[in-house]
Design a protein around this nucleic acid. Structure first.
Length: 556
RNA sequence: GCCCUAGUAGCUCAGAGGAAGAGCAACAGCCUCCUAAGCUGUAGGUCACAGGUUCGAAUCCUGUCUAGGGCGCCA
């Protein structure tokens, strides 16, 4: 708990005591006291709505209650400077903000771990995200999922969870057979032979490239090999190359996984069969029309779902249930899936499956990444997956850059449709929100360069008493909110709360920067104190940007 | 038809019981001074609509309208 939270707790305790002393309510009747940080400056440093909440218990008008609370409050104990009753019965507290200075050494001490909290109690959490089929390039939707997923993982880690990042490789289904056929077709094509793409083939440039590679390396060697053998080779080759590409693209996007989980491994280890057997024993499945059905309606799904088709093969759901069983067996208290919007109808059946396996419904959390529409110069950019004509993650990184792409995706709540404005993201101007935050960091760095040029050395033990202006306190308040902001973002699975926070922090800093001078050769004492303050800002900003996978430039 | 998302300033979006918010765009100012990719100020709103719950609703409930998406023995 940092000093801001301590002061808040103290103030809450004093309010509770005042309520008792005034005889407004007995100790057991007092509702949880909430202190808000008002948006408006005129509403003080903290505001309490307790008087309104007590209206019914005390059977008095809220403003009268507020009056009595303030009369019985021990101002000396909670560094209260002034109290005002406002609106329907808010009590606005104006504090002596000197205590905020204590944040500076605390932030410097914590350094890279500033922002961490015990919120997650070291609970084991698994986040599965991206998990795109290894059959082509990562497109816009995957890019959004990667940015949101990775940022969420960083946030969860900072909030005190033990996080595993996982990618589920769909390397067992039909789509891999189609990949093999597609590679084959491109291979023949590269050799100048007649070749036709399968109905559901993959038309991407990458697959064409693989065909060329194979033709260059092996010549016409595969033309006479038996089809089965040839396809097996192409399948392996295609999968290997696709995975290399995926990993590289994601890595370059600053997204790395702890576990790459192969669907095939579930089959090889008999996990799929084992899971089906378990469901049968638990009488969660039944046979009908030659197929095996999962009674998902027991757990609120619209209809029962087929697990084994009448031709004996599994549906997609079956290995996926086995996969989730495996997740929980690895000891994760919570499993978070980040899925594309096209999977959203799939949530109820997966939740049903988790319950059928004997786990709690809320142990599985599914976040949906909504659709991304691309705009350029005000025009909607049309994309077609079939022809492989789609904007890829790689395109975005090259055209827009990693920082802007990651920031843009992290900026909006994930479960709403996103209009991605390419022109805006590419523009090197103040219209682009990512620069606002980065510029703040560059300015901070510049201050330290200037300071050292002018002979000031940064002193972590500087006397901080010169820090006393409103702008400085505003900065410190914002810095003090950081761990709470991280924990809240973790609690709501909402990375976009971090971009909001960083924007606010940058804004308070820019405002301070314009109003006050840090490096002042005339006043060494003040300069040293402010350098320490500004160092705390820099640490906070940098930690936040790192969570979003955005770089913190020294110069711009 | 059923289910999910959304509808808040001109535009893009936060806010999810407590005092209507940000960025961009518009308008008016600010660089002899640590980076003007910045700052300061002005203007801009029936929070889609109608009911309900509450001391209090953009926020919760019910219904309606509009937009997008999902509803396979595909993955």
């Amino acid at each position: 708990m940092n000093i801001v939270e301590q002061v808040k707790e103290q103030l809450k305790a004093e309010i509770a005591q005042a309520i008792e002393k005034a005889g407004l309510a007995a100790a057991g009747e007092i509702p949880a006291i909430i202190l808000e940080t008002p948006k408006e400056k005129e509403h003080g440093d903290f505001a309490a709505n307790i008087a309104m909440q007590l209206a019914r218990i005390a059977k008095k008008a809220p403003r009268a209650i507020a009056e009595e609370i303030t009369e019985h409050l021990d101002k000396s104990k909670a560094s209260i400077e002034k109290m005002e009753i406002a609106g329907p019965g808010f009590i606005n507290f104006f504090l002596d903000n000197g205590y905020l200075r204590e944040l500076i050494p605390a932030v410097m001490e914590a350094d890279q771990s500033y922002g961490c909290s015990e919120f997650g109690n070291n609970q084991k959490v698994q986040v599965e995200f991206v998990s795109a089929n290894p059959t082509g390039n990562l497109h816009l939707g995957h890019a959004r999922g990667a940015a949101v997923g990775d940022s969420l993982c960083n946030i969860l880690e900072k909030a005190g969870y033990d996080v595993t990042r996982e990618y589920y490789i769909n390397d067992a289904g039909n789509q891999i057979n189609n990949l093999a056929y597609s590679v084959e077709a491109r291979y023949f094509e590269a050799l100048g032979k007649e070749a036709s793409m399968p109905e559901d083939g993959y038309h991407g440039e990458d697959v064409r490239q693989f065909g060329k590679e194979l033709a260059d390396t092996y010549g016409d060697r595969f033309i006479d090999t038996p089809e089965e053998e040839r396809l097996a080779f192409f399948r392996e080759y295609g999968l290997k190359r696709e995975m290399e590409k995926l990993k590289q693209d994601l890595h370059d996007f600053h997204v790395d996984f702890d576990v790459w989980f192969s669907e095939t491994s579930l089959y090889e280890e008999g996990k799929v069969e084992e899971t089906l057997q378990l469901l049968r024993e638990k009488e969660e499945v039944y046979d009908q029309d030659g197929a095996v059905w999962f009674r998902s309606t027991t757990y609120g799904d619209d209809k029962d779902r087929v697990l084994v088709k009448s031709d004996g093969s599994y549906t997609y759901l079956m290995p996926d249930i086995a996969y989730h069983k495996n997740k929980f067996e690895r000891g994760f208290a919570k499993v978070i899936n980040i899925w594309g919007a096209d999977h959203h109808g799939y949530i109820p059946r997966m939740q049903a499956a988790v319950q059928a396996l004997g786990y709690q419904k809320n142990q599985l959390e599914t976040q949906i990444i909504q659709m991304v529409n691309l705009y350029e110069n005000g025009e909607r950019v049309k994309m077609s997956k079939r022809t492989g004509k789609a904007v890829t993650l790689r395109d975005l990184m090259e055209e827009v850059g990693i920082d802007a792409t990651r920031y843009f995706f992290a900026m909006r709540s994930a479960d709403t449709h996103l209009d991605f404005d390419l022109s805006l993201a590419k523009s090197q101007s103040n219209e682009n929100p990512v620069y606002y935050v980065q510029y703040a960091h560059a300015r901070l760095s510049s201050i330290f360069r200037q300071a050292s040029e002018k002979g000031f050395s940064f002193d972590p033990n500087a006397d901080l008493t010169p820090i006393a202006s409103e702008k400085e306190y505003d900065l410190l308040k914002k810095i003090g909110e950081f761990p709470e902001a991280v924990a809240l973002a973790a609690d709501k699975y909402a990375p976009h709360r971090m971009t909001t926070y960083l924007h606010e922090l940058a804004s308070v800093f820019h405002s301070f920067y314009n109003a006050e001078r840090v490096v002042d050769p005339e006043d060494e004492k003040k300069t040293k104190a402010r350098l320490a303050l500004v160092k705390a800002v820099q640490i906070t900003l940098r930690n936040g940007m790192k969570m979003l996978g955005v770089s913190a430039p020294e110069k711009m």
